[in-house]
Simulated scan of single mutants.
Amino acid sequence: MLGTIAATVTAAALAAPVAGLFAHRAVRRSANARLMRIGTPNGMDEQGFVRIGGIDQWISVRGEDRANPVLLEIHGGPGAANSPYGARTRAWEEHFTLVRWDMRGAGLTFAHGGPVAQGGEPSFERLYADALEVVHHVRERLGVDRVVLLPSSFGTVFGLRLARSHPELFSAYVGTDQNVLEAGRDTSAYDATLERLRAAGKKKAVAQVEAMGSDPRRWTPAQRTAYDKLCAGSDPLTLDTVKKVILGSMWLSPLYSPGRIAAYFKGQGFSEPVTAGTHGFDDWAEGTRFEVPFFVFQGALDVITPAARAKAYFDAVEAPVKAFALIEDASHFAALRRPDRFLELLLTHVRPVVTAGRRTTDAA
């Protein structure tokens, strides 16, 4: 999805004078590099490669006070690393130590040696094992018993299973762009995608989506990618977020050269097979009881992982503490489109629980 949209946006951008385009980029990247500096006495800024699962994987650990709670992100995709978004989420690092990990086959991990350095074709099982190893690495490096688990989009498929199986490792679960796998029973997102495509007169796309069928368990990885492209591309708000927030952040990130941007999208293609390992999952059947505080902050207008589906699952969850909140004026990628609102929710609901013991919070 992102790769196809990126090609269109890049072509349009390069229609402008190249020298001016890159001069503007250089100025903005320098400003972002200054923004990212951490100079506080108890701050931390470690970015580099750690040996995880037998290969070098990129991990960033940043924050203005090591005494703050630790947030460990599990990014989506597959292959949609969060490493480009440091400038957008800089304010989070005032209140949390933010750990970003580019999975095997994704982002800077993929760019570091390409496909031959990924240890073979990625699978859900292998990435899940990597995630557990990353959790243990972070706990040891920062000297903490538990971390706040912050998965997004496809990352929540890992996140739910990590939180269910290893509650001793996490002080809270915070899902966003929350995915709920339910064995093909809920077709609301699929039906809405078809409705948007029909309204736009996209007959070829309608036929393509209809031919796939509504059960994602039967899709090939390539079909899933094609569906995601059509689902997101047919929604103006999601498409705007991809262009301005996702691609814009990548273009202006101090970490991303043009070569690394190209590698980012190659990594997404490389990571496509991971979804095949989830076809047998059913989050309802696998359990709605969690032994950790459970939070979901969802884009109110999400067309990829609809808020209504996430709320239905949340309502069934049993947890020591739980809260659900909508992020207004946001579709998918809600935390990145509205990082200020997401931080507000973290400070209102999550930080008090993980720093001062468990207590009940009401959703905003």
Rank of each mutant, 00 (worst) to 15 (best):
L2T: 03
L2Y: 15
I5M: 13
A11H: 10
A12P: 05
A13Y: 15
L14Q: 08
A16P: 05
A16F: 04
P17H: 12
P17M: 00
G20V: 05
F22I: 11
R25Y: 01
V27L: 14
N32H: 07
A33T: 06
T40Y: 01
T40H: 13
T40V: 12
M44S: 11
M44E: 15
Q47S: 14
G53H: 14
G54P: 14
G54A: 11
W58P: 04
E64K: 11
R66Y: 07
L71C: 15
E73D: 13
H75N: 10
H75V: 14
G79N: 11
G79S: 06
G79L: 12
A80F: 02
P84L: 07
R88C: 04
T89L: 07
R90Y: 03
H95R: 06
T97L: 12
L98M: 13
W101Y: 08
M103G: 02
R104I: 08
A111K: 09
G114C: 15
P115F: 10
V116Y: 03
G120R: 06
S123V: 07
A131N: 10
H136F: 09
E140K: 08
L142E: 11
V144W: 05
S153H: 00
V157P: 02
L162Q: 02
H166Y: 02
L169I: 12
G175V: 08
Q178M: 12
S188A: 11
A189H: 09
Y190R: 07
Y190N: 04
D191Y: 08
T193G: 11
T193M: 09
E195N: 14
E195Q: 15
R196C: 04
L197S: 09
A199R: 14
G213I: 02
S214V: 07
S214L: 00
D215V: 04
D215Q: 02
T220H: 09
P221D: 04
A222Q: 09
A226K: 12
D228Q: 08
D228G: 01
D228W: 13
A232G: 10
G233N: 04
S234A: 10
D235P: 07
V242M: 15
V242S: 13
K243Y: 02
I246C: 05
S249L: 03
S249C: 11
W251V: 09
S253K: 02
A262N: 01
A262S: 13
A263W: 00
A263R: 04
K266R: 14
Q268R: 09
W284Y: 12
A285Y: 07
E286D: 08
G287M: 02
F290S: 05
F290R: 03
F290T: 07
P293R: 05
V296K: 02
P306V: 10
R309W: 06
Y313P: 00
E318G: 09
A319S: 13
V321E: 11
V321Q: 13
V321D: 12
A323V: 14
D329I: 00
H332W: 06
F333N: 15
A335D: 06
R338D: 08
R341P: 01
L347M: 14
L347P: 00
H349W: 00
R358T: 03
R359W: 00
T360F: 03
T361A: 10
A363K: 06
